[in-house]
Nucleic acid binder design. Structure first.
Ligand SMILES: [Mn+2]
Ligand SMILES: [Mn+2]
Ligand SMILES: [Zn+2]
Ligand SMILES: [Zn+2]
Lengths: 149, 149
DNA sequence: ATTGCGACTGAGAACTATTCTCAATAAGCT
DNA sequence: AGCTTATTGAGAATAGTTCTCAGTCGCAAT
């Protein structure tokens, strides 16, 4: 998916939700795209100081509601935001217990298939209606495991 | 693992961390045990009103540091707490997008093996030191998908 | 038992990530 | 251009969580 295709997809989703694709929202998408990993609000406004923090929160929420952005609750203090899976594709995360950074990760299709089947069975047994799964690895990133610790 | 074995295990871990196994901490473990699923602080103090909220937070943090309790960041507003995997055994979660409730779930060993191998390869490629994985299903619980929506 | 001392407790204050408010502005439509 | 409605942004408000500190408890040595 090219950058312009992504913008079109976001515009489509916002339109469907009765929302406008304003400059600020476009810049938010560009920032998520250029940082290329789940980021905090702080990182976003530091990289794009013209974005007001309150508007960033509000617009990320709008973008999430329209399915363009995903919000990740974090073990630390700051939630992280990334482009949604319909845009970025299905993937997983490497979450650092030390510095809180999150990196994207992909698994082979065979693994995804086994996981999906196992989860489908578990959901069925519990009467649970599944929307999506999350599969993250928690540990220490290259930067944090190298020096000391 | 019986209830008394669990208390012994918690006592062992606290002792190793130079911490005491006080009445309040014991009651916290009993509450987690009796509720039998990841719960919020609010649920804990409602079920055991003798526990002061500030002490509950502090002691759950102590118990987490000693490896007896796990804290789960939540998509909603409240973090959840459960007994740690060394005590409860490895498992996963069904997380309701509507009501925020979390239920435990187990996967077949074959699935776990495939997942572990896939994650080990991904971690190796990224220079990531893995501690544990989380694999959760997000969707709608039986209670929330039944009525309407 | 008694004593001493450091760990623990609890009520509330403080902190801070996030959400809300509302007057000013921008977007889209005719 | 003018009209209508959504959006913006600075700051206030909210709320989950952490911190403070004086009083209490647990434990071990006497
Ligand atoms: Mn997957
Ligand atoms: Mn697993
Ligand atoms: Zn790190
Ligand atoms: Zn539910």
């Amino acid at each position: 998916m090219s950058t312009s295709e992504i913008h079109e997809e976001v515009a489509r989703r916002l339109d469907q939700a009765g929302q406008r694709y304003t400059r600020g929202r476009r810049r938010l998408i560009d920032t998520l795209l250029s940082l290329g990993r789940p980021v905090t609000i702080r990182e976003i406004v530091e990289n794009e100081p013209e974005l007001a923090q309150s508007s960033a929160y509000r617009n990320l929420d709008v973008l999430q509601s329209s399915g363009a952005v995903r919000r990740l609750p974090s073990p630390g203090d700051f939630d992280h935001f990334e482009l949604s899976e319909p845009i970025l594709g299905h993937h997983h995360h490497l979450i650092c217990l030390q510095c809180g950074s999150i990196a994207d990760m992909h698994l082979p299709d065979e693994v995804e298939e086994v996981v999906d089947q196992g989860l489908a069975a578990a959901a069925h047994d519990a009467g649970f209606f599944a929307v999506q799964h999350s599969l993250d690895l928690h540990g220490y990133c290259a930067g944090c495991s190298a020096p000391a610790n």
